[in-house]
Amino acid sequence: MRLTLRIALIVTLSTLFVGMEPGDTQTVSVVNNLEFGDVFPGVPKSIDKAQTGAAEFSVSGNAGDEITVEFILPDYMSTTSGHSMRLVFGSADLAMDSSASPNQSAPLNDDLNPYIVQTYGIGANGLSVWLGGKAVPKLVQQPGNYSADITITITYTGN
């Protein structure tokens, strides 16, 4: 009985460690925020995912791990005093690259819809994710600093 229990315990611990391995080394971090800079009332301003100012996220993990990438995107940016400005994300504002040398200008997987959950494999150097967007100020937009949260969730699928 004791022998049986020990074997069961070893198998369980092995399962535990094997099961944790992919997640244990996986991280996601913000490299750049989506920065529109100066915006003028009545003049929409777009930041392309391939240009400076685009949001960039970096995912690290074991090469070959399959993950899903999901965003929670804001509809508005706002000031601390409560003024809001429309923020729009288009159906091709997302790009990802898991190659050894991620290229923001010519990513492996371009023109993706950030509102759709993307399934992707992590490369040897992880995965780079870029996001663009458009700020749409009103003609009478209140001057000031506006901001909003962009949340990215990386989920390990186990595949």
Partner: peptide, 21 residues
Amino acid sequence: CVLAANYVVTGQATATVATAL
């Protein structure tokens, strides 16, 4: 451990609106 392999990070969108005309 396996099911909780879920990583979340929050970035920011920022802009500065200039003085109105």
